[in-house]
Each structure stands twice: as C-alpha cells, then as structure tokens.
C-alpha cells in the first residue's frame, strides 16, 4: 500500500513538473504550445539512449535537457515570429514529426519496439530503484527545477514574459525585444522538460513512440486548464487533481474495457465543470489563445 502511494506521488510530481514547463509557454508568454509531447519525447529518448549506453545518471539527464532544449530552439527559431494560434499549429506539427522519426529511425530508436531496461540509478553507492528512494530522487530533482523556474517566473524577466501574453504589440512599443524573450522562455521550458524526462523514463523503465501522442498532450493541456494557466501553482495543482481522480476511478468496480471510456468521461465532466464555474482554472489567470 505505501509502495502504491509512493509510486503514485512520484508520478504526480513528474507530471506536475512537465505541466509547469507547459505553463511557462501557455500561461506566461501566452503561446499555444502543442509541441510539448514532442519535446518530452526528444528528452526521453536522449536520456534513455545515453543511460542504456552506460552514461552516468546526471550526465544522461543533462543530455536529455540539452537535446530537448535544442529541439525547442529549432522549433522556436522559425515559429516564434508567428502569432499564437499559428504557432500552435506549427508546434503540433513537431509532435507528429518526432513521432514518425521515433518510429522510422529504427537503428537509433528501435522503432515501435521502444527502449526497455532503462534502469533507475545508483548514486554515491545508494540504489534509487525502490519506490521510496525513487520518490526521494524525484522530489529532490523536482524541487531544484521548481525552485529555478519559480525564481525565473517571479523575476523581472518573468514579468516581461507576462507582458507578451497581455499585449505583445505594447511590449514591443516599449522597447522589448519580444522575440528574444519568447525564444529564451521556450528553450528554457524545453530544457527543463528534458531534465524531467530522465525522471519519467526511469520511472516507467521503458519508453516507446506510443507514449508520446495526442493522448498525453491532452492530459497536460487539461491539467493546465483545470489548474489555471499563468499562475505558478496552476499546472502543478491541475496535474495533481487529474491524476488523483484518475487513480480513484480504479476503485469503481468496472469491467476492464469500460475503464478507459469512464476515465475520459470524468476528464470531460471535470473540464466542463471548471470551464463553467472557474473559467480561469482553479488557481487562476486567463488562458489567452488568440492575439489581437
């Protein structure tokens, strides 16, 4: 029972952190980032491949961050000049490109077979493979990432990101190089998604292309909308609520083939409920998906 709770908490922390990274883009600069799962896939594969080839844990983790950050840079350079909704479509494209690369670059990725045997690390002679120790590792890394993002988002730099969400034209007219800010925010968000990818890949100990699709994107978007985009705790709270509810559905006596549909229905009801009674999410600010 404790193992079960610890595993669940570990997963919640991991998904919260990825939702937080999504919040940096959707909530702070106000750009509809639909390429998140593509970035997550790049980070996960980079980490997994380095890990199974014997790189030390933190090196592989940094590798995940750097590759994900580079993917963010490549996507952001041409597309962050576009307006939010065009950016949304372009970034969604990234997810499909990454997905088909993962399927087809079989020499590197093993295609649909995925990469098994991604071990949890042993650091300073201590094994972090058990639920309790892995929870501790996840919490420690997430606290560091969360602290860094908190400092950044609450800083004057973060304020400028918010002016871009509020009114990008006005920000430009005040002398802000908004493109440079957007690009930095995007690379930063992608880098941290890559860092967290190390935790998620080692959590599941197996990754494959099917784990990086629209379904996962919808989870993160829903978590952010429920929690509230644009407030630091929004994505974190949203992921917590959604995953908790998802777990509770396990205790409803259902035939196995009803579990999926019921879960989706509960998401949908929850979203409708939030949109009706708390349109800005539980924590917060407006999610702007268009620009004037």
């Amino acid at each position: 029972m404790t193992d079960y709770i610890l595993n669940l908490l570990t997963l919640i922390i991991i998904m919260s952190m990825i939702t937080l990274c999504l919040n940096v883009i959707i909530g702070y600069i106000g750009y509809l980032h639909l390429g998140l799962v593509g970035i997550w896939a790049v980070g996960s594969y980079a980490y997994a491949l380095m890990a199974v080839h014997g790189f030390p844990f933190f090196v592989a983790m940094l590798g995940g961050g750097i590759f994900a950050g580079a993917a963010g840079l490549l996507l952001g350079l041409p597309t962050l000049r576009l307006k939010s909704h065009y950016f949304g479509i372009a970034s969604l494209g990234l997810m499909y490109i990454v997905y088909s690369l993962l399927l087809n670059l079989t020499d590197l990725t093993r295609g649909p077979l995925g990469i098994p045997g991604i071990l949890r690390p042993t650091l300073f002679g201590i094994s972090f493979s058990g639920p309790a120790m892995y929870f501790v590792l996840t919490l420690a890394v997430s606290l560091v990432v969360g602290f860094l993002l908190y400092r950044i988002l609450k800083s004057p730099f973060g304020k400028i990101l918010e002016t871009i969400r509020e009114d990008e034209i006005a920000a430009k007219a005040l002398g802000k190089n908004t493109y440079a800010y957007k690009l930095q925010a995007f690379v930063l968000s992608s880098f941290f998604v890559g860092i967290i990818s190390a935790l998620s890949a080692s959590y599941f100990q197996y990754i494959s292309p099917t784990g990086f699709q629209v379904e996962q994107l919808i989870f993160f978007l829903a978590a952010l909308m429920v929690g509230g985009a644009g407030s630091f705790w929004g994505g974190i709270v949203g992921a917590f609520v959604l995953l908790t509810i998802q777990e509770l559905t396990r205790f409803i006596p259902l035939t196995p083939n009803a579990v999926g549909p019921v879960r989706t229905m509960i998401y949908a009801l929850l979203l409708i409920f939030v949109m009706l009674y708390k349109p800005d999410g539980l924590m917060g600010k407006k999610m702007k998906v268009y620009q004037r």
């Binding site: 800083s155 004057p156 400028i160 920000a171 005040l174």
Partner: peptide, 14 residues
C-alpha cells in the same frame, strides 16, 4: 515598472 530602460529583466538577473 516594466517600461523602464533599467528594468533588470535579463534572464540571469533572476
């Protein structure tokens, strides 16, 4: 505040 030239909004300044 965000309009000031001296607004310390470089990333490292966080």
């Amino acid at each position: 505040v965000v309009a000031f030239k001296g607004h310390p909004s470089k990333l490292y300044q966080a």
